[in-house]
Simulated assay, not measured.
Amino acid sequence: MTDGADRAPGWESVPDADSLHGDRGLPPAMTATVGTAPGRDATSRRRPRRRTAVVGLVAGITASVLLLVVAGIGWTTGSDDHSAERPVQSFLRDVEDGHLADALETAGIHRGHDDVLLTDAVYARAGDRITAHRITSVEQGSDRAVVRAVVTQAGRGVPATFELERTGTDWGVFPVWSLRPPALGSVQVAVQGPPRSTVQVAGADVRTDAGGAAELRAFPGSYGVHLSGGEWFTAEDTRAAVPGFGAPATPVVVTTTLTDAGSRAASAAVDAWVDGCVASALPAPAGCSFSASGEDPASTWTDQKWTLGARPSVVIGGWASKGWAVQTRSPGSATFTARFSGPTGQGTATAGPIDVNASGWITTFGADGATFVPAVANGQSDSGS
């Protein structure tokens, strides 16, 4: 190393290399006490306090952020849980799972005495039930909401609309929505047979009214319809479809036909009616299709009677407005005779042969067989005199 005379210009203030080593040339005692100088020791004691303050500040900020995140998550979750679509989702899931009792409660639907199809057991026997659903829109106001969905039934998408109303709040913030009872579909059955017949709809007994009809509220699906007429009449099984919620129902017509036993009983009822008319001693038997006239009221009449010449031939068809129609294929005949005595003398009077018709209806069956009601009586268009 050269001395200071040999240094390049500008380097005069640069210390020698040997002087850059701080502990070289110092006495051993000084070297040992450099780290514990009074000034440096005070600085060392203050540093942990700064770190503690910084850590506390960071922890406070982190806690605030976490609170904001949790609050945001809670608000989002609460809003989702209180969306108007939630009751609709719950209702449709219960219907899909066959839990009708739960679905009725969710929707506020009251089950009446005649609602025999609104049970879990009956619905379990229904076909073409809802298998899935999809919410398509939610219109949510302050007090009212409309939720639209598409339900999958029998492999097809069927639109459905549900209305809700706000019935309160949770925690004073989130709305509580209640599903208004949706309009259900219905099974309509029209029996072409005796009124007040018992029909099985999905296994449930249903009694028709005086017109032979029955209408029952039902959830979406298809319901088997069966009518048993015992030994007298029969009907083919059919199914009633309920497409979606509130859709107009198509009546299912159950057509009855007489069995062989029913046809024999019907013919026997017609014969019994004819025999009753012929057994009358009156020239105009009540409720019959034939009568005799021309009696002289000044004479006394005795031994009055009808004699059947031939029975009418009839055909029994399907159910008409009042019963199974009975039509006269060819009329029978009857003759009326009587003895008389009076101002003109005495003798025997005869009227006939007179046509005997037997058109009418077989209205019902009972333990004694069939009941026949004639369509005409005493001299009307289907009678002779």
Rank of each mutant, 00 (worst) to 15 (best):
L117W: 10
Y223C: 00
V158A: 06
R47D: 11
G246S: 01
A377G: 06
V252G: 05
V187D: 04
P48N: 10
T328S: 14
R311Y: 12
V356G: 03
A145R: 07
V254W: 00
S313E: 12
A214C: 12
T363V: 12
S333N: 04
T259V: 10
P248Y: 02
A213N: 14
G211D: 14
A375Y: 05
A63W: 08
V254Y: 01
G276V: 06
V199Q: 10
W171P: 05
F233I: 13
P9W: 00
L179Q: 02
D18E: 12
D368G: 13
V253C: 00
G384D: 11
P182T: 04
W11C: 11
V225Y: 07
L308M: 03
N357I: 01
S291V: 00
T337E: 12
W319K: 06
A310E: 07
S228W: 02
A247R: 04
A279R: 12
A325S: 07
E236V: 04
Q192W: 03
V158N: 06
A247H: 02
S299Q: 06
V138C: 11
W273G: 01
R134V: 14
W171D: 15
G332R: 00
A101V: 14
W232M: 07
G74D: 07
V242Q: 13
T31V: 15
D209Q: 09
A310H: 02
F162I: 08
S222P: 13
A351K: 14
A265R: 00
R47E: 13
G185T: 00
G366L: 08
A351W: 13
L216P: 07
P283T: 04
G352T: 01
T62Y: 08
L227N: 03
V242Y: 09
V58A: 15
G78T: 02
V55K: 05
P27E: 06
M1A: 13
L104C: 09
S289Y: 04
G309M: 04
V122P: 02
A377W: 00
A124G: 11
G345A: 04
W232V: 02
W75T: 10
Q153H: 03
Q140K: 06
R217W: 01
P374I: 11
P343C: 10
V54Q: 15
T364L: 14
V376Y: 03
G345Q: 03
P38Y: 09
S289Q: 01
A268S: 14
R144G: 10
A265Q: 00
T363H: 03
G332Q: 02
T371C: 05
A286R: 07
D3E: 13
T76Y: 01
Q304A: 15
G366Q: 08
F372A: 00
S90G: 13
W324E: 10
G224K: 03
